[in-house]
Design a protein around this nucleic acid. Structure first.
Lengths: 229, 229
DNA sequence: TAAACCCCTAGCCATTTGGCTAGGAAGGGA
DNA sequence: TCCCTTCCTAGCCAAATGGCTAGGGGTTTA
């Protein structure tokens, strides 16, 4: 029951003593402990910090300057913030590679993440323990690692998704959330202290961004994209 | 970074040498390793088997007769099978307590699981490491453990959900799925080889069952309920 | 300072809904 | 057999939506 490929220690691709310094970001303790345990079976890995919020991720990266950041983009209500973090890291901390460990594979998110310089993308549900370790190693060495299923998504996504996710504004999201609760434009207007016209305006804009033509589809898409917590 | 309440070993509620035998069922390695690591920090716990499929769960329980089964009901495409397993276990292996560790809290699933004799229900995203250990211990001792949020759901659910989720029919689900893709009644009619009237009929029925009044709300609800895969 | 966004508002019009009433037909149990 | 459920169809009408065009004001940024 407990076999796993023994710790194949340092293969010397870096100086034998140097270990890969890793920051793990996931809101979920179980995942953090699991990732840490899997990686630290190998002598070459050291998880130097854990983070559970978007702020904490930035702090940890800034403080520890890790070789690899393993992150679940979904640390809060708004996955978009996870994407922003990818931007920040690849921009300001080029020596830190980013590997996304996602719960669910969402076309839009995958493509956007890769566009922002993420070099690893694995699905929690599909990854095996050894794949995770190897993946982290590979990412650190500058390779791009895409898990099962991720590849296909990329192939499909690169063309079509292009302008699809151009970031919904706060108000647009607010409106969509209200819509998903069944509110009419009039009700939403009252709720948000704006006119019905404005509600329609936001909806039209959001629809164009997501390429939808009906509010039902809008909430379907938003939900599938993880925008509706 | 590594403090966690030291192993408070056997408190003597059972004979000091006896450890709590646990089976962990989760499709996800990271979770399995995480759960195991967290629990085995305490001397009183032993994870005797892991399972990744519905069949494997039954086999493991049958073979090891564990004190506690920790399970994520969502081991495949069909969460319903997870519920059936709860039935089986509580029925045929009464000495094995079942603790559900869910990714997402879904009203229907929570209520159904509890109705089938599950005595522990925690959310992966919200549980803390010590809560998990304590929870398992408590469940083993016959207590009922409900995590954050679960309690509220139960409170709401027991009354209202009662007849709310009276099972959507196949056709109703088909229609809802189409709606969530933005199709109009007319389009759906063509797609399903029925008239527009019938489409509206199914929608009306589904709406009554879910207590919604707009198709956007319908897909919102269906999505939140995990009906739209 | 202009360009680029975001937010707000107005009105028009064809379509699509939501909600209702009122049927018919087929299959599974009690 | 009768009852219950699911599935199918029809028509009506008020209300809501989608898709436009055409504005104004505010902030940030190049």
């Amino acid at each position: 029951m407990a076999n796993e490929g023994r710790p194949d220690v340092s293969l010397g691709r870096r100086s034998p003593m140097a270990s890969t310094r890793i920051v793990v970001a996931d809101r979920n303790v179980i995942n953090r402990v699991g990732i840490r345990s899997i990686l630290e079976r190998n002598a070459g890995f050291a998880v130097v910090a854990e983070a559970t919020t978007y702020e904490a991720v930035m702090d940890a990266v800034d403080e520890h300057g890790p070789d690899v950041l393993i992150i679940d983009l979904d640390l809060g209500d708004d996955t978009t913030r996870g994407l922003k973090i990818c931007d920040d890291i690849t921009e300001n901390y080029p020596s830190t590679k980013v590997m996304v460990l996602a719960n669910t594979l969402n076309e839009m998110i995958v493509v956007e993440a890769l566009r922002r310089g993420v070099t690893g993308y694995l699905s929690k549900d599909e990854v095996r323990a050894d794949e995770l370790s190897k993946g982290v190693k590979a990412v650190q060495d500058g390779e791009t690692v895409l898990g099962k299923g991720v590849g296909n998504i990329v192939a499909r996504g690169l063309g079509s998704v292009r302008g699809q996710m151009e970031h919904l504004t706060d108000r647009e999201l607010d409106v969509i959330r209200a819509v998903s609760k069944g509110m009419s434009n009039k009700q939403i207007a009252v709720l948000m202290y704006i006119t019905e016209s404005t509600v329609k305006f936001h909806l039209q804009n959001a629809s164009k961004k997501l390429g939808t033509h009906k509010r039902a589809e809008l909430v379907g898409r938003a939900h599938a994209a993880g925008l509706l917590k």
